[in-house]
Amino acid sequence: MNIQVNDEPHRFTEPLTPLDLLSLLSLSAEGCALAINQVIIPRDNWPSHLLKDGDQVLLFQAIAGG
């Protein structure tokens, strides 16, 4: 299964949820937002939403500033 994550290609051998993806990429879900194919996925759906071959995932990390 091929997935683009922030415009970088990644290949996985089994179906993944967004939480699985974050874990495999060693990223924290805290302070993170996620869009799949330009649609924001609510955090409550991350454990059950299955990524598909060809999906484009954008991860946004909250940054504090001032």
Rank of each mutant, 00 (worst) to 15 (best):
residue 26 S to I: 02
residue 26 S to F: 10
residue 27 L to V: 02
residue 27 L to S: 07
residue 27 L to A: 09
residue 27 L to P: 04
residue 27 L to I: 08
residue 28 S to E: 13
residue 28 S to Y: 12
residue 28 S to Q: 10
residue 28 S to A: 12
residue 28 S to L: 06
residue 29 A to C: 06
residue 29 A to I: 00
residue 30 E to K: 15
residue 30 E to P: 08
residue 31 G to H: 13
residue 31 G to V: 11
residue 31 G to N: 11
residue 32 C to F: 10
residue 32 C to M: 15
residue 32 C to I: 12
residue 33 A to P: 09
residue 33 A to E: 05
residue 33 A to K: 10
residue 33 A to W: 13
residue 34 L to M: 14
residue 34 L to S: 06
residue 34 L to C: 04
residue 34 L to G: 06
residue 34 L to Q: 09
residue 35 A to S: 14
residue 35 A to T: 09
residue 36 I to Q: 04
residue 36 I to K: 04
residue 36 I to A: 07
residue 36 I to L: 13
residue 36 I to M: 09
residue 36 I to W: 04
residue 37 N to G: 11
residue 37 N to C: 12
residue 37 N to P: 08
residue 37 N to T: 10
residue 37 N to A: 06
residue 38 Q to H: 14
residue 39 V to P: 00
residue 39 V to E: 13
residue 40 I to T: 01
residue 40 I to V: 15
residue 40 I to F: 15
residue 41 I to R: 06
residue 41 I to F: 05
residue 41 I to E: 03
residue 41 I to W: 02
residue 41 I to P: 00
residue 41 I to N: 02
residue 42 P to H: 10
residue 42 P to N: 05
residue 42 P to C: 03
residue 42 P to W: 05
residue 42 P to S: 10
residue 42 P to V: 04
residue 42 P to G: 08
residue 42 P to Q: 08
residue 42 P to I: 03
residue 42 P to E: 10
residue 42 P to Y: 05
residue 43 R to N: 05
residue 43 R to T: 09
residue 43 R to F: 10
residue 43 R to E: 14
residue 44 D to F: 06
residue 44 D to Y: 09
residue 44 D to T: 12
residue 45 N to R: 15
residue 45 N to H: 14
residue 45 N to W: 12
residue 45 N to S: 15
residue 45 N to P: 03
residue 45 N to T: 05
residue 46 W to G: 10
residue 46 W to L: 09
residue 46 W to N: 07
residue 46 W to D: 06
residue 46 W to R: 09
residue 46 W to F: 09
residue 47 P to Y: 11
residue 47 P to C: 08
residue 47 P to S: 08
residue 47 P to L: 08
residue 48 S to V: 15
residue 48 S to N: 14
residue 48 S to P: 05
residue 48 S to I: 12
residue 49 H to A: 02
residue 49 H to T: 09
residue 49 H to C: 05
residue 50 L to S: 10
residue 50 L to N: 07
residue 50 L to D: 00
residue 51 L to K: 01
residue 51 L to T: 00
residue 52 K to M: 07
residue 52 K to H: 11
residue 52 K to I: 02
residue 52 K to T: 03
residue 52 K to A: 13
residue 52 K to E: 11
residue 53 D to E: 14
residue 53 D to S: 14
residue 53 D to N: 13
residue 54 G to L: 01
residue 54 G to D: 04
residue 54 G to F: 02
residue 54 G to V: 02
residue 55 D to Q: 04
residue 55 D to Y: 03
residue 55 D to F: 01
residue 55 D to S: 02
residue 55 D to P: 03
residue 56 Q to H: 13
residue 56 Q to T: 07
residue 57 V to A: 02
residue 57 V to R: 00
residue 58 L to N: 03
residue 58 L to S: 09
residue 58 L to K: 05
residue 58 L to E: 06
residue 59 L to R: 06
residue 60 F to S: 00
residue 60 F to L: 14
residue 61 Q to M: 03
residue 61 Q to L: 07
residue 62 A to I: 02
residue 62 A to M: 06
residue 62 A to N: 01
residue 62 A to W: 01
residue 63 I to A: 00
residue 63 I to D: 04
residue 63 I to V: 14
residue 64 A to R: 08
residue 64 A to F: 07
residue 64 A to V: 01
residue 64 A to Q: 12
